[in-house]
Design a protein around this nucleic acid. Structure first.
Lengths: 147, 147
DNA sequence: ATTAAAAAAGCAACACAGTTGCAAAATATT
DNA sequence: AATATTTTGCAACTGTGTTGCTTTTTTAAT
């Protein structure tokens, strides 16, 4: 496990929380760390499993909710009805998410990825419809599973 | 309520069920009727409310599952994690859904529509990723709410 | 550094969605 | 019409997410 200087890392976490006006607590640091260590999205279940030994279920829910509210993470809709979360890029802030990238779900390893470089396409809608937000979820096989 | 000749309508429902190798039961006819009468998608809750006085919760679940399996209806992923169902076009069959249209969720009236004429766009993925299916859900205001 | 105020965590209890096994009823098959 | 098959309803259970409230932790103020 690539674990760098603990204090330095801690500072980084705390700075991120402070910047978002969240008080610094063990659970928030732990869960934030999970996201930073993990490339790809996390299902609620994953998070609960990895953080759940130390923290209450309810705390995990409330922490994730707080992160979503502050624009630190965003949710990813999936066909199988299990919410996934992933870190936001820096442009997101309290009350306004700007996630214009698409999401990729691997049907082999089941992992979910934010393809940050692939922007959502313009969709030409029938007369009368007005778009506010476009969500694209692509299912297929990911880089790792294809090689 | 536009109710045409009952027998003729019943025949239509039964034919649709037979074509999909499903035995003809009251619950299946009732729920299928709901979809035919309703333009737009139905949330599980809607269906249970409208069919639930007559049928058990479990039956509704199993009926919907059977319809999905046979390719009569398809599910629509939504951000709020509440599955919606809508009728498939004729090309769908057992074990293979071909829904290449996009879905539209109205943020005003909360209704969900299949925009059958709007096909899912080609998405250019990073090297290494292979797409199998593309889901697009557009959120905005619908025709009715805009006029 | 102590202390008071504010925020978050933990706990218990609850509400709700979805599933499973099994007996009874309805449908299909001959 | 009789039998085999499928579906239904029921009860019980599991999992997920929520709420109210008390205790603990964190923050801010002295």
């Amino acid at each position: 496990m690539p674990k760098r200087n603990t204090i330095e890392n801690d500072n980084r976490l705390e700075a991120l929380l402070k910047r978002n006006h969240l008080s610094i607590t063990e659970s928030r640091k732990k869960i934030l760390q999970l996201f930073l260590d993990h490339n790809g999205a996390l299902a609620h279940g994953d998070i609960e499993k990895r953080a759940g030994e130390k923290f209450d279920r309810v705390t995990v829910y409330r922490t994730l909710q707080a992160f979503v509210d502050k624009g630190i993470i965003h949710t990813i809709p999936t066909a199988d009805n299990s919410i996934r979360y992933a870190l936001c890029k820096d442009e997101c802030g309290e009350g306004h998410h700007h996630d214009h990238h698409i999401h990729f779900v691997c049907s082999r390893c089941q992992k979910t990825f934010c393809l940050d470089d692939v922007v959502t396409p313009d969709i030409k809608l029938p007369r009368g419809y007005a778009a506010q937000q476009v969500e694209v979820v692509v299912q297929g096989t990911c880089k790792a599973c294809n090689s």
